[in-house]
Simulated assay, not measured.
Amino acid sequence: MACQQPFFSPRLPFTGCIQGALHEGKTITLTGRVLPGAQRFHVNLQCGSRGNPDVALHFNPRYDGSKDIVICNTMQHSKWGSEEREYPAHMTRGANFTLMFLVNRDSYSVIVNGAHFMEYLHRLSFSRVDTISVDGGVEIQSIAFSNPAVTSPPPQPGYPVQPHSSQRNRTRSRQSKSGPKNPPQWCNATQVGMVMLWILCSQVVPYKNIMAGGLYPGRNITVQGVVNHNADKFCVNLRFNSGVALHFNPRFNENIVVRNSLLKEQWGPEERTGGMPFYRGHSECVLVTIMCDTNCYRVMVNGVQMFSYNHLMTLSSVLV
């Protein structure tokens, strides 16, 4: 299944299509910031975009009462159902956030900043949901989509990550005929660091770019792509001027994900625990989100937190 390109920095009110509608295991990930003076905002997962469509999930943080609260509801045939209320909101005014919706058979799992927040039982069939809308006192940096991971195949021998020469030649031939194209919106330099992943619908790798403004607590880096069928390994590096602050390196022949830092031209001790959430040989998109906290990076794969890595360099020095 082809991956849907994320929406970046959409103007509000925003309404966008969910390609292929929702299905079990799909995730939708929003990153953004609640405005300092926000009274409320909402995210709707809805059935169409015209007229007054049914809303399968209305996710509505509110800050205009004595307590911050999240209200969830469903609208069917222009009538709202009974509200479900959750305290506290965990999405404070003026703060950055990552909000994920995971589609389960019986419910939506809502994950806020990497932690499970609530479950919302389906009142409408999620297969009808083909639209997402956002409005209110919030700035959205990105809205990304990920399809479910596929069960791991039996172990296979490792192969080089680079595409075959014939594939590279075909790619160059197509590019020379069509001329240069504008980069996809989700390869914005403020969103993606250095990527060594064969990415569908994206730039040719290896890919490198400057992250304007550097990193800071609350900033998120989102990488979405497809692992090459013959990949031995890939890596995502967050770099500073003389080294690597975070080296995130899934290795398929060892079935591990290695995390490390390169400081003063020397690699530190590797961190190897935490499992292997990536699989080669499948066409499913993978969504990797690196969340910058005050003390560590938190790495989420398809909406699930898998790893944390303590900072060895100041965030503001990481620019590539």
Rank of each mutant, 00 (worst) to 15 (best):
L45I: 12
N253D: 15
L287T: 02
Q185F: 02
F126I: 07
S283V: 15
A231K: 00
N73S: 06
E265M: 02
S178M: 15
N249V: 15
F14K: 08
F307W: 02
W267M: 06
R172Q: 15
S242H: 15
Y207P: 04
G214Q: 02
L200T: 08
T31F: 02
I221G: 00
L246K: 13
K181A: 14
N237V: 04
P183W: 09
R50K: 10
P206G: 09
S49R: 14
Q305S: 14
E270V: 08
Q167N: 11
N310L: 15
Y108W: 14
V103N: 01
R123S: 10
L30I: 12
N237E: 09
N295V: 12
L99P: 07
R298Y: 04
T289G: 11
R11Q: 10
L200N: 09
V320E: 10
K26P: 00
M211P: 00
P157C: 00
H122S: 06
K177D: 08
F101M: 01
V257P: 13
A95S: 13
D54P: 04
G158L: 08
V227E: 01
D106I: 08
Q19C: 09
S308Y: 15
S166C: 03
I28N: 00
C3R: 04
L238G: 03
F307I: 04
G114P: 10
I221Y: 08
V103M: 12
H282N: 14
P269N: 12
F97V: 05
A21Q: 13
T74D: 09
S78C: 13
E271K: 13
G214S: 05
V55S: 12
R239S: 06
V34M: 04
T92G: 04
V301H: 07
H90F: 05
Y108D: 00
N169K: 12
M276P: 04
S316N: 09
V205G: 01
V195M: 07
R239T: 08
Y279I: 13
G193P: 14
G65D: 11
P217C: 08
F307A: 07
V110N: 03
P36A: 10
G65F: 04
C201K: 09
E83Y: 06
L287W: 03
N302G: 03
E265I: 00
L263P: 07
N310G: 11
R280T: 10
L215M: 13
M194L: 12
A89Y: 02
M300E: 05
Q156P: 00
S133M: 00
Y216W: 04
V192E: 06
G281P: 11
N253G: 12
I221K: 02
S125C: 14
V129K: 02
V43K: 00
M1I: 11
V304S: 03
D130V: 07
G213L: 08
P163R: 01
S49T: 14
P88D: 12
